[in-house]
Structure formats: C-alpha cells, structure tokens
Design a protein around this nucleic acid. Structure first.
Lengths: 152, 152
DNA sequence: GCAATACCCTACTAAATTGATAGAGATAGT
DNA sequence: ACTATCTCTATCAATTTAGTAGGGTATTGC
C-alpha cells in the first residue's frame, strides 16, 4: 500500500497538470477539490517543488504550476520522493543500494532473484508511465483495451 | 521494502523445504543457520503453521516441516501472511478490497488505473513463483537466462 | 505603506507498525 | 521425572504515518 501522502501527491499533480498552461493553482483550491487536508498538502507541494517537479509563486496571484513537462514526470520518480526506495529488498535498489546485513552471496540468493523479477516487472510500468500518460489515458504496451479488472 | 519478518519467513521456508522429505527442522537450527533471532523466528513459524503452510511436532524429535508441497506455495501467499494486502491501493485489492474514502469514481480514477498496471505486472510474478521454483532456480517465462541485474 | 493572500518552514503529536525480547505453559520422547 | 521443543501472550523501544499548529516571508493591489 502506498501512503496517503503519495496518493495526495498524485492527485495534486494531476490537478495541476490538467490546468491550462501558464495558470497556477493554489494549494487551497487543490485541497478543496481533491479532499486533501490543506496544511498537509502544503508540505507535499513543497516537497514536489524541492524535487524540481513544480514551481511556485507567492502572493495574491500565486500558486503552483508544473516546472517540467508532464510527459517527463514518471510515476516512479514521484513515488520515490514520498516513499523512498521502491525496491522490495535493499540489495535490489539501484538508487539506495544496501547489502543485506546477513547476506552471504547476493548472486546465489533465491529470495533476491525472485523479488528481482517482481521488481523488474513493476518497474517497467512505473518507470515508463508519466503524468501525461495518466491524464490522457494513453494506452500501455502499444494497444488500447477496455480495463478488465473488476473492483471487489 | 518488505519487512524483516517476511524476509525471515522466506529464509526459513527455503531451509525447511530444502531438508529431506519427512525430516523436521527445529526453530533453533533454522535460526542459527540463517541469522534469524530465535524467539522472533518462533512467532514467524507459528504464523506459517496457522496459515496451513507448515506442520509441527513438539518434544524431543520435534520441529517443523512443510505441510503442503513446495510447488503449491507461492510467494504472494507468503507475503500476504506477513505484509497484509500486496495491492498498492485498497481499491485494487481483491482479497482486502476497500473503497478509497474520498473516491468519486473508481473506473475513471487515473491513479487507480496506472497502479493497477504496475500491480498486475508484479502479481504475475509473485502469484506464479513458488518455493519449489526458488529452490531449483527454475526459469521464469519459459526460458533460461543469466541474470542481467547488477548490484549497486 | 499596508493589508490581504499565498507560499515557506519548523515543531509537535497521537496512533500504528516494526523488530524484536521475555517468560510461562503445553507436549513429546527417554 | 527430565529435558527439548513448540505455543502463546505480554511488553517495549524506535520508527513511521498522518496529520495539526503556528508562525514567517514574499507578492499584489489599493
């Protein structure tokens, strides 16, 4: 399960990305329209700004806007800001690599191998999907299909 | 990142599964050979027993052994015992489904759609890989290949 | 210049989770 | 009876999560 913080970040980003180019959205607006606690959202937007995803203006006509084009901002990038490493094991992370304390041999570790496969699979999605993709419901994998997943 | 508890559980399971059919391994043995705190491991093995994965015997010739064949025990099954739902969002979980508190429409939720893709991808691995596969380093996806991942 | 608006920053808190440790009880074998 | 082993419950410290609180700082418009 991803944290509320990360979920709020995606909601906010999608809201900002949807706004017409050049217009800024205020934290108050975003909070109200997306069921996010206002002061909590402020922290999140600040994190996104510090990460170079958003830009901001203060004062009366202030607010937040995308700093980078929406099609360059991937889901994994955002997730990492709020969740830290996405790898299931420290020894599988490229960006936050840490050897397991008690590991004898990484190459022969069956747990590492299996989780490596799972991680590869999910990373292939999260690394390639962007905010722009999410907004436009672009197809994944080169074809369009109705969602087959059923809730429940 | 998966919890230490889950990681220990996999280590223990692999150790037990590796033992000759019919022989039981004691928690003390498993703990010593796999760098797991003994009393912590006891809780874990108990959970695995309650979940119907292991059987146990008390007393002098006691210990733990597989209850079900190793090729029927999937990674996702074990993970769920110790980590709860694997889905990144409650509204994507089949076994622990919960609507997001503030969700207006699940079908049109872009966040749900994108994470659904990532979840599908990793589930395809974790649902299909078993303890037996991990032990025998069986190929995944119908072919054998040298691991291309580099640690670091 | 001054007030209103909106972002910026830090500190705090309650509740839950993680990663154990501790100790007593139940059962099986010799 | 004795001992090895599993079984069960309680407890604990550290960390994380999900916020709340309350100022401080920049910008605009009058």
């Amino acid at each position: 399960m991803i944290s509320n913080k990360a979920k709020y970040a995606f909601r906010a980003l999608l809201a900002i990305a949807e706004a017409p180019e050049g217009t800024a959205m205020t934290s108050t607006e975003i909070a109200a329209n997306n069921a996010i606690p206002h002061k909590f959202l402020e922290q999140i937007l600040l994190d996104l700004k510090k990460a170079g995803i958003l830009e901001s203006r203060r004062g009366k006509l202030g607010g937040y806007a995308m700093l980078r084009p929406t099609d360059t901002v991937t889901f994994s990038e955002i997730l990492r800001i709020f969740e830290g490493p996405l790898a299931p094991l420290p020894c599988l992370s490229r960006q936050f690599y840490r050897r397991c304390d008690d590991c004898e041999s990484e190459v022969s570790c069956a747990i590492r191998r299996e989780f490596g496969r799972a991680y590869d699979a999910s990373r292939q999605v999260l690394d390639s999907r962007t905010i722009a993709d999410a907004l436009h419901d672009d197809a994944f994998g080169g074809f369009v299909s109705a969602p087959s997943r059923k809730a429940g």
